[in-house]
Amino acid sequence: MNYVESSRLIKSEDLNHHGTLFAGRMAEWFVESSFFGAAKIKGEANLVCAQIHDIRYLLPVHSGEIITFASKVIKVGATSMFVYAKVLNMNGDKVLEGIVRFVSVDENENKIPHNITLDEPETDEDKELIKMIK
């Protein structure tokens, strides 16, 4: 599966007291971009974030930088979808990566099957990403 991408410009209001991107803001955008990856394959927005399995902050981000979020579904269960997301800086360096689990729900917020299947992972990258799920 291909990545779904989105970008953000880092502004002064996004910074912490060290002058770098506030981790909470990054986490918010990370979950949002992960949702984009899940919604792209699901085709509707009846998904909720159930768990953030892992976020690894790898490099600082500064004001004025543009960062790109790339996400894709790497594994599905009957009602859940596991999305891998990474964030790249303007040089293409990975500044963050992690996994989020979304669950498909009905109008009463009960879990429902999403009826999505994925092909077995073919690339070494996808096989390694699946190993990140704990």
Rank of each mutant, 00 (worst) to 15 (best):
A50P: 00
V87D: 00
G24M: 12
S63F: 10
V105R: 06
R56S: 07
V103N: 03
G24W: 05
N110F: 10
L47T: 06
P113G: 09
G37E: 09
N89G: 04
K134W: 03
I74A: 08
D119L: 11
K86V: 13
A23W: 07
E125H: 08
V31W: 04
V73E: 03
K72H: 01
I112R: 09
V31D: 07
K42M: 13
E5K: 13
L15Y: 15
N2W: 00
F22I: 02
V83R: 06
I66F: 07
L96I: 13
F30Q: 05
N110S: 09
N16E: 08
V100D: 11
D119Q: 13
P121K: 05
I66W: 05
D119A: 15
N46Q: 15
Y3K: 04
E122P: 01
S34F: 02
S104T: 14
P60Q: 14
R101Y: 00
E13K: 14
G19R: 14
Y84Q: 09
K134H: 08
E125M: 08
I67G: 02
I66T: 12
V61H: 03
A78P: 01
E125S: 09
H53Y: 14
L21W: 12
V76L: 09
F35P: 00
V73Y: 03
F69E: 02
K11S: 06
P121Q: 08
H114Q: 12
Q51S: 14
E97L: 11
A27N: 09
K72L: 01
D119T: 13
R56E: 06
I10K: 01
H114K: 10
K127V: 01
D119I: 05
I52V: 15
S80H: 06
V83Q: 09
N16V: 02
L118H: 06
A27T: 14
N91R: 11
N89A: 05
C49M: 06
L58N: 13
Y84K: 04
L58E: 13
V61I: 12
S7V: 05
A27P: 00
D124V: 15
L118C: 05
S63H: 12
S80T: 13
F102M: 09
M81V: 07
V87K: 01
K11H: 05
N108L: 12
I112A: 04
V48P: 08
H18T: 12
D124L: 15
M1K: 03
Y57H: 13
V100L: 11
I10G: 01
E107H: 15
Y3N: 02
F22N: 09
K75W: 01
E125I: 11
L88G: 03
K111W: 06
A70N: 05
F22E: 06
A38L: 03
M81L: 14
S12L: 07
K11A: 05
S33I: 07
L15C: 13
Q51M: 09
D106S: 12
K134Q: 07
K40E: 13
G77L: 13
L129A: 04
G92W: 09
